[in-house]
Amino acid sequence: MPEIRQLTVDGRFNGPDGSANGGYVCGSFARLCPAPVAVTLHAPPRLDRPLRAEVGGRRAHLWDGDQLIATAAPTEHRVGHVDPVSWEEAVRASGLYRGQVNHPYPRCFACGPDREPGDGLLLAPGPVPGRAATVACPWVPDEAAGTGEDGRVAAEFVWSVLDCPSGWTADLVAAPRVLGWMRAELETSPAPGDRCVVVGRLDTGDDHGFASTSVLYDSRGTALARATTRWYAP
């Protein structure tokens, strides 16, 4: 019999208005599972509402009443590699962030420009000159990202940081997309105040959606975490 757990996403951690940030809910759900998983989102997760997680079997399920919100399952997929960029390159790329104007979800917890410091992550992934289909931005964890018992950034916030930069490898202003599938591999988490760089690369895409890889690096260019994501029309 599966174990029943409860997951409630606080209203602050939204993506599109009225629903949870995809990376945050995927990471929160994955933390409830006994083994590493990939998470598929089937419907927008509502905020400030208790969701029922059934975990313990080969597949885990997240429900909102009778509606299936997400499925988590073990996967043999290995996340690929994206070369790092320097802090200075990431700062320059961030100045080219397409989402600064006409963002489809301007109050997104991770990448929305309408959030305040300490409230949102304020990621601004912009194109890296000379690197095809690659975006990057700097990130210094502050009080917007919660920490675990070890004092480092909690896993669900790392999933959030890997989520949105992978989405901005495509033009979300011209063709808005939402996260549909995510697999993350975490080596370690940064501590508050650590200088980090997030890099994302578009891998494949068509009119129906696209797949990307993102990597979180520390200031020495060491990969802390990485993810593969798949994005689809809302």
Rank of each mutant, 00 (worst) to 15 (best):
T213D: 05
S160N: 14
E89Y: 08
D150V: 09
G11F: 04
V140Q: 11
L179T: 09
W139L: 04
F13Y: 09
G205R: 00
R92M: 05
G118C: 00
S214N: 10
G146F: 06
G18C: 10
G15Q: 06
V39S: 00
G148Y: 13
V173N: 07
D10Q: 05
D64A: 10
P36R: 07
N102R: 10
V101R: 08
V158F: 12
L202D: 09
P165F: 04
L179K: 07
R52D: 11
T188N: 10
P129Q: 05
P141M: 01
G95P: 01
A20T: 05
R152K: 12
R78S: 12
R46V: 15
P125Q: 04
A30D: 01
P113M: 00
A154R: 05
L51W: 04
D119M: 10
G23H: 13
R107T: 12
W159H: 02
V140A: 12
P36S: 07
P45A: 14
T188H: 11
A110T: 13
P192T: 02
L162R: 02
P192M: 05
G22Q: 06
G15E: 08
G99H: 00
G11C: 02
L202T: 14
R31A: 15
S212N: 01
W87V: 14
V82R: 10
D83F: 13
D119F: 10
W181V: 00
V153C: 11
A227H: 01
E156Q: 15
P84I: 15
W63A: 11
G22Y: 09
S28K: 13
R31D: 12
D114G: 06
T222F: 14
Q67R: 13
A154W: 04
S214L: 08
P2D: 05
D206T: 02
P50T: 03
P44C: 10
P2E: 06
A233E: 13
M1I: 11
G112K: 00
G209M: 08
A72V: 03
P2R: 04
T213I: 07
Q100R: 07
V39C: 01
P165T: 06
P138R: 01
A170S: 12
A225S: 03
G65H: 03
S19M: 14
P74N: 07
W139P: 03
